[in-house]
Design a protein around this nucleic acid. Structure first.
Length: 386
RNA sequence: GGGGAGAUACCAAAGUGGCCAACUGGGGCAGACUGUAAAUCUGCUGGCGCACGCCUUCGUAGGUUCGAAUCCUGCUCUCCCCA
């Protein structure tokens, strides 16, 4: 059981250091569940579980500072009644560090078959039992109040790629109208569990520069504790993604954390940091890990490949997780190939630890002034296929 | 000793005259995965060229036929039942 009592306090963001050569900065976000040192990577725990990694290892080994939950999935299972009876998601899953919940906007996009977008909200059928539901900017706030997320995400439409200009524009405008409604509801309601929650708006606009500028200006006009960039890493070329980040971060307040939703590869993250992004999340370290892809400082390993069959060297020499020295590549390959649960667990632990090492190291480099050189070296190495 | 069933590619298992280099599953090899309906999905898996094609395969040796994994005969082996 959780025995701590979170304090009520305003969320604060303080920038501790700027890189100088890029837009990168190192900061700290104060929440009711403790500080988050940025730049940060947030492991994804969709249904109240970072797949394959338990809460203790998440803290002691991965060194996660904040994790994600998903409104859509938690709403369907276990449901808000259970979450409220549990006293919120933190208590339910026994996690006393910050939680950010995605609003379900991405699910509305990815579960396209059964959704219908209307002015009032998104109408959809549950992928579990087919039951019909409506998500509105207001009830998604209400649900996230019950979940008790420290950071509540706005309800948006995440446009697919490719997406023609007129649809992207209409969608963005809808997202903006939903934003105003969501903020209104949020500001009219109180947290249920005694600690501060905050609400992040989301920039949309697909890959269109003028739409991104308009969207960034619109959301920046609302004074919030942080801002998110959505609708990227959905299949567009990475250069377009980087361009959009630059355009948007030009406008978003410098003194507030910026969250690039759903990104990405280790290289994407370093490029994002260099462009002034502070927060990232992605399923890649866990999902790809379960499927045998390992991210290391020297590049990417497909541990299923036969070339590792008799390689008894450590998973990663001097790696960030205890599993790196404890187990050999040959053993991990055997586990993954044999579809052993432990293989997925070790790979997830390794990848998440590596991601957290990466952002922590980036922060240290920003602070000591060596970020630029280090980043360009790392970007070369990280994409190598070993 | 008597009766019955069967031998197909790495394994299992379809196919019973041409559309069969041979369904399907497993295994093997490779690839994909970016706000998680994913411990998932895709491709390849006889040889050579790798598009088209050519060559060698369905226990084994013959035979019938324009044509056989598929029909006939001998042989070898395996399994089951009864003594």
């Amino acid at each position: 059981m959780v025995i701590f009592e979170p304090k009520i306090e305003d969320m604060k963001f303080e920038v501790n250091a700027f890189d100088g050569n890029s837009e990168a900065r190192a900061g700290i976000i104060e929440t009711g569940h403790g500080p988050i040192k940025t730049p940060i990577f947030m492991p994804v725990g969709t249904v109240g579980s970072v797949k394959g990694v338990n809460q203790r290892d998440l803290i002691t080994d991965v060194k996660a500072q904040i994790i994600l939950g998903n409104t859509y999935h938690l709403f369907l299972r276990p449901g808000i009644e259970t979450l409220e009876l549990a006293g919120g998601l933190h208590k339910f899953i026994s996690w006393d560090k910050p939680i950010l919940t995605d609003s379900g906007g991405y699910q509305v996009f990815s579960l396209a078959e059964n959704r219908k977008l209307k002015e009032d909200g998104a109408h959809f059928s549950s992928h579990i039992d087919g039951s019909k539901h409506i998500f509105t900017p207001e009830n998604v706030v209400d649900i996230q109040r019950v979940i008790g997320a420290d950071i509540v995400m706005a309800f948006d439409e995440c446009t697919p790629f490719p997406c023609d200009y007129s649809y992207a524009k209409k969608s963005m405008q809808l997202t903006h109208r939903w934003l105003a409604r969501g903020i209104k509801r949020f500001d009219e309601t109180e947290p249920l569990y005694g600690y501060k929650q905050t609400y992040f708006p989301i920039v949309q606009g697909s890959v269109y520069k003028d739409l991104r500028i308009e969207s960034a200006n619109t959301i920046a006009s609302f004074d919030r504790d942080g801002y998110a960039i959505g609708g990227l890493s959905v299949g567009e070329p990475v250069e377009e993604m980087y361009d959009m980040i630059e355009v948007v971060n030009e406008i978003l307040p410098k003194n507030k954390p910026r969250y690039l939703m759903g990104v990405g590869t280790p290289v994407n993250i370093l490029e994002g940091i260099a462009r002034g992004v502070d927060m990232f999340d992605c399923v890649m370290p866990t999902r790809n890990g379960r499927n045998g892809m390992l991210f290391t400082r020297d590049g990417i390993i497909n541990i299923k490949n036969v070339k590792w069959k008799n390689d008894f060297t450590p998973i990663e020499k001097n790696g960030a997780s205890f599993v790196d020295e404890k187990f050999s590549k040959a053993y991990l390959r055997h586990l993954i190939v044999s579809k052993e649960i432990l293989g997925a667990q070790i790979a997830s632990l390794h990848n998440l630890s590596f991601y957290l090492w990466l952002v922590t190291e980036a922060r240290n480099r920003i602070v000591d002034g060596s970020f630029a050189v280090w980043k360009s070296e790392m970007v070369q190495k990280l994409a190598v296929r070993l």
